Amino acid sequence: MAAPKSWSRDRLTDDQAAAIMKAVGYKPLEPYPNSRAPWRCRCTECGEISTPRVINARMGRGCRACSRRQMLAARRVAAAAVADAFVQAAGFEPLELYPGAAAPWLCRCTGCGKTRVIRVNSARTRGLSCSACLGDRSADAA
Rank of each mutant, 00 (worst) to 15 (best):
N56H: 14
T125E: 12
R76Y: 04
A101L: 01
T125A: 10
R61E: 09
A78L: 13
S131A: 14
C43H: 04
D140V: 10
A101Y: 08
W105P: 03
L97V: 05
P52H: 07
L134G: 05
Y98D: 04
V117K: 10
A83R: 00
A89Y: 02
S138W: 06
R137C: 07
L97Y: 04
A103H: 12
V87S: 01
V87M: 06
L106Q: 09
G113S: 15
R75L: 15
A123L: 06
C41A: 13
C46E: 09
R75S: 12
P99H: 03
R68S: 15
L95R: 11
I118Q: 06
N34Y: 05
A101R: 14
A78G: 11
S122M: 04
A74H: 03
A101I: 14
T125S: 13
Y98R: 03
R61M: 11
C46F: 15
R124E: 13
V87E: 00
G111M: 05
I118A: 07
L97A: 14
C130W: 00
R64Q: 05
G91F: 04
S129F: 11
C112H: 06
S122G: 10
C41W: 04
T51Y: 11
R124T: 05
W39N: 02
I49K: 13
A103R: 14
N56F: 10
L97N: 11
L106P: 00
A80G: 15
N121L: 07
C46N: 15
G62D: 14
T125C: 03
C63N: 07
D140Y: 14
Q88W: 02
L97M: 10
I49S: 07
R42L: 10
A73W: 00
V82T: 10
L128W: 06
I55R: 08
S50Q: 13
R75T: 06
